[in-house]
Simulated assay, not measured.
Amino acid sequence: MAAIESTSRTLVSRTQLNRPVGKAVYWTTFVVLVLLFALAFLFPFYWMVTGGLKSPQELIQVPPTLVPAHPQVSNYHTAWSDADLGRLLWNTTFYAAGALLFQLAFDIGAAYAFSKLRPVFGNVFMFGMLSTMMIPTTVLALPAYLTANSLPFVHWSLLNTPWVIWLPSVASNAFSILLLKRFFDSIPAELLAAASIDGAGPMRALWSVILPMSRPILGVVSIFAVVNVWKDFLWPLLTLTNTSAQTVNIGLNQLSVGLPLNILIAALAIASVPTIVFFLIFQRNIMSGLTAGSLKG
């Protein structure tokens, strides 16, 4: 173990780190960088939260105040009621949950087929699917809208329905399939062979062997699915014109004209809480899922 540590290459050698001066410089630099990055990421959120506590006059004051002089907590209650945030958050949560379920079902099936079942022309289909990632989303907006407005053959309109969010989210999810396939590739074939000897078919092997081992990458895919629906703006703006069906981004965008600036900022702060909580709960799955499957041992 000592030999491995002595031959490992790092920015700061173990000898320099053991010296008092080297240790002080290392930890000082480390703490300063962590504080700077934390400030860069947390200050915008702090500014938004405190902006919702200010009065309209204090909000536009020059120079701006870092701490509200007279915090108005009632701004958040006003934002919740006037912006109808309960309905907007429920709509967005419903769309995100449905997109998550559909993406997990289809993406897991596609990745499992590409990785373990090896269908005929599988590499060709995989290449074609990944090539769609090179096409900008805005280029596909018009044909996707025309398709959603009148489905081929049946001529059904999906506008102002949850399907207009769920189906496109599944169709444009090549990256998640790639992540799942890479992880499935790292699972030893001997485990599936042992399951086959025990009488497990492909579906049973997927359910009993593959999925229990894939929790980290499933967490990453879930985060991507929920966040992509939650932050999307252009597609819901085009397809969810009915007020009762709008997401939180579209609803706040349309209400921004009539709401005071401090109430709007308070509404934005409330709308950002679910994604932050969701990220904090599943943050451990991000790095573990993205790095899982990169090495085979």
Rank of each mutant, 00 (worst) to 15 (best):
L39I: 14
T50E: 01
R9C: 02
I286R: 06
A99Q: 11
L88R: 10
P71Q: 09
S176R: 06
T15S: 14
S55W: 09
G51V: 01
M203Q: 06
P143G: 05
V12F: 04
D232R: 00
P68M: 01
W235F: 05
T147Y: 02
T78G: 01
A271G: 07
A40H: 02
P143E: 03
P216M: 03
F175W: 13
A40Y: 10
H77K: 05
P68T: 02
S115E: 10
Y76R: 03
L264E: 02
L11I: 13
L252H: 04
F41H: 05
P274T: 02
L36Q: 00
A194S: 14
T132L: 11
N285S: 15
L159C: 08
S150G: 12
I187K: 01
W230A: 06
T7R: 14
A267Q: 06
L42T: 15
S157A: 06
A245T: 12
A83W: 06
G122F: 11
V25N: 07
L104M: 15
A194H: 07
L151I: 08
W163D: 03
P119A: 10
A38L: 13
M134D: 00
R204C: 01
L178T: 03
R19I: 01
S222T: 08
L238C: 02
A40V: 09
N249E: 12
V12H: 03
G128L: 14
W230G: 04
P274W: 01
F37G: 04
Y95P: 11
V154A: 11
R19Y: 00
F102A: 15
N228R: 10
F224W: 14
Q57R: 07
M126N: 12
F184W: 11
G293D: 12
A96S: 14
I263R: 10
F183V: 03
F121A: 15
L259Y: 12
I4G: 09
L261H: 10
I223Q: 02
V221S: 08
I60D: 04
L130E: 06
R118F: 00
A111K: 08
P20E: 09
G289F: 10
Q283M: 13
A271L: 05
R284V: 09
L238S: 03
M213T: 08
K181W: 04
L252C: 03
E190Q: 14
A113Q: 07
A144V: 13
S196A: 14
T29F: 11
S150P: 07
L158S: 05
N173M: 09
I281D: 01
N160A: 08
S214C: 07
M129V: 13
S288Y: 11
L104G: 12
P143R: 02
L35S: 12
L295V: 15
A144D: 08
L218E: 02
L240Y: 00
S256H: 02
L11N: 12
L268I: 13
S13C: 06
W90N: 05
I135Q: 05
L100P: 12
V220N: 01
N160L: 08
G122W: 11
F41W: 09
T50W: 02
